[in-house]
Structures are given as C-alpha cells and as structure tokens.
Amino acid sequence: MFPIKDTEPNRYSPFPMMTLFLIVINTVVLLLEPAWWREDHLFFREFGSTPSFILERFGPTVVASLTALFLHSGFFHLFGNMFALWVFGRRVEDACGPMRFLIFYLLCGVSADVMSTIVRSGSTIPSIGASGAVFGVMGAYLILYPAGRIRTLVLVWGPVIAWPRIRAIWIVLYFLGMQIIPAIDILFHGTEYYIGYWAHMGGFFASVTIFLFLRPEAFARYISDADV
C-alpha cells in the first residue's frame, strides 16, 4: 500500500510552502552527503542522533537531534519519507500555517528521537531520517481529517495493481500497525533493527500536540465538528 495523493483541496492557503521547502532541503542534503563523508566515517556519528551519546551528554546532541531529521541513507529512504510528507503534510500545513507547521514538524522529529533514545538507551548506532517527524504529520492528519480520502497505490497480486481512494484512518492505522510488532520485539528482546520503529511511535504520539499549532479558525472548526 502506497499513498499517492490527498484528494481534498486546501482551505486556507493555496500553496504548501513549508512542506515543499522541507522536501527540497532534505533532497539537497542527500545530494550533498557524499561530499561530507570522511574516511573516519564520523559524519553520521556527528550529525546522526546516537542514544548512548544523548544519555551520556557526549557530543553536540541537540544539533545532531535536529540534523538527523534531514539526513537519509539513500534515495529510497528519502523518497518514502518525502512522498509521505507531501501527501499528508500539505493539508496539515494548511491548517497550521507554514511557521507553526515547521515547529510542529521539528517537535515531532525531536520527540521521535527522545522516544528512540529511551527505548534504545545503550545503543551506539546513530539514527537518521525524517520518518519520526513524518509519522507525527501522519498522526496530525489522522486527528484533523480522519475521513479524508487518499488515492493509494495497492499491489493486489503480483503485477496487478489498483489505486482506490482510501480513508485516511485506514492508511494511517495500517502504517502504525506495521510498527507495533517490531516495536514490541525491541522493547522486550532488545533486538536491533535498521528501522527506528520506536522513533516512528514517538513521532506519532507527539502528533497530539497539533492542537497547539492550529490556526484559530481551524481549531474552532475542529471543536465544532465542522470540516477543518
């Protein structure tokens, strides 16, 4: 299942400036990454977020916690995150305004990092990627537009594909469901995965703070059960 497009129009602003800006920044950073790599492989240690470093207050952890949000390990990693950001971020940004959306996005990203640090406390493996923040945006989308319809690419069987419009609640729950089993495995068995499942959960939980960032009119609409 791959969400392609949110089919509903914007209400408050015609263009998702900040969403697009974040996508551009992430892409530019990925293109520049090879130039920053060094022989001692310290680049990801310096600018990725490492749980044991945070707990030991070792290195520039605050800076790393933010820069890690803009680092990706390759094209597919970036593509998956940025596509989801585009699909879900456009209308969340519309409901918040660009600057408040940026703060919300960073807040979800840092929450993801904090959650990941708590669960993987002894780990010296740095984590990178915007997926925690993107899960926060998806959570906010679920809160604001649970009945929103997303055009989704579904692999039915082998080469047979379909692209129905699916309610946001099913898509977000599907992606959240995919995190739960590995997250439990990490929690109880300490298994190391290459994917930050708990970071995704942390970002998703942080999405409840969306109410602190909504435009006044969007908030009034939300509490009035009107379309946000």
């Binding site: 945070i54 707990l55 030991e56 207050r57 605050v62 703060i103 929450s111």
Partner: peptide, 14 residues
Amino acid sequence: FLLYFLLLMVHNGL
C-alpha cells in the same frame, strides 16, 4: 517552548 524543552532534555541527557 515545548520544542525547546525537548531539545533541553536531549542536551541534558534526558
């Protein structure tokens, strides 16, 4: 402030 507080937590080893 919430974002700042989380970053402070990160800075101070949670």
